[in-house]
């Protein structure tokens, strides 16, 4: 009995002493600001700042290597908190969100072949350039859904990625995951977008998609400063997009959309049929 108590107590005492001494002797000095910065960061380790994770970014900010406003998930709030810790002032960075510039789901856009492989867009893209006839359209296999750290992307039943603008933090992870660059970053304040990613000629676009941009120039004629036509594909000029919404009703293919106000035009495909083949 006594031996057991003495033995276990002795082991415990030796271990405790050793740990106590080691804690003093091997203490690693850390910049106290680094811990404060790390606590103020969202802690999602998305890598949008360019560092491998939040702890790396915290160290870089504490050492002064990186600016405190480079964390898109944290946004303005985090940037201000970090600036407070460092005792400096920062510039406001306009928030951006990802936009899927395609609305050709299974019901509106044609498939080249029936894909039965791995559920991954990058794998599908390697097989004869992907199952979709359109070279730029969303493949709908959900690589971006899995890449999103914030659960901001969902798939419609028609296999089209949809971004929740409130949840999107602008970290650009989905842009990296997409093999077709069907996502772009746009200022959150602009809600009107050209939802097409095909540079093909109008006649060709019509063959495989009911809602593709045919490069007809009507939007540019309606609101010249808000649109640019680049290689047969219209784009909203995000710097002067105040009146861009005026062209929504004019677009013959209905591929200009207001992403927040969905009632501004009738929904595409509601009264049309699936293209043959």
């Amino acid at each position: 009995m006594l031996a057991a108590v003495a033995c276990l107590g002795g082991i415990g005492l030796v271990a405790a002493t050793a740990l106590g001494i080691a804690a003093k002797k091997f203490a690693v000095e850390v910049d106290p600001r680094e811990a404060a910065i790390l606590a103020a960061l969202p802690g999602v380790n998305c890598g949008a700042c360019g560092e491998p994770g939040c702890s790396g970014y915290a160290r870089a900010v504490a050492e002064g290597r990186l600016a405190p406003n480079l964390c898109p998930p944290g946004g303005q709030q985090t940037a201000e908190a970090l600036a407070d810790i460092l005792g400096i002032k920062i510039k406001v960075k306009e928030p951006a969100v990802a936009v899927v510039i395609c609305q050709g789901g299974d019901n509106l856009a044609r498939q080249k072949y029936h894909y039965l492989g791995l559920e991954d867009c990058n794998a599908a893209q390697k097989l004869a350039g992907g199952p979709k006839s359109c070279p730029g359209g969303c493949l709908g296999l959900g690589s971006c859904v899995r890449a999103c750290l914030f659960g901001a992307i969902t798939m419609t039943p028609e296999h089209l990625a949809v971004i929740d603008r409130d949840k999107c933090t602008g970290c650009e992870q989905c842009l990296k995951a997409c093999p077709r660059q069907v996502m772009i970053m746009a200022p959150k304040t602009v809600t009107t977008h050209v939802l097409c990613n095909s540079h093909d000629k109008g006649a060709e676009v019509r063959k495989y998609c009911q809602v593709g941009c045919i490069g007809c120039n009507i939007c540019k004629k309606t609101v010249p400063e808000a649109y640019t036509i680049d290689n047969l594909l219209a784009r909203v000029n995000y710097a002067q997009a105040d009146n861009a919404a005026l062209a929504i009703a004019k677009c013959p293919m209905k591929c200009i959309r207001d992403l927040v106000d969905n009632n501004s035009a009738e929904k595409p495909g509601s009264d049309e049929t699936v293209p043959a083949g």
Binding site: A4, C7, I11, A16, L19
Partner: peptide, 27 residues
């Protein structure tokens, strides 16, 4: 000391503190 019945608890004690110690030294 014929304390074989203390094996489990003694081992847990020693392993846990040892790993802590190693962690500090490695850091």
């Amino acid at each position: 000391f014929n304390l074989d019945y203390l094996q489990t608890i003694a081992f847990i004690l020693v392993i846990a503190s040892l790993v802590q110690l190693v962690e500090m030294i490695v850091q």
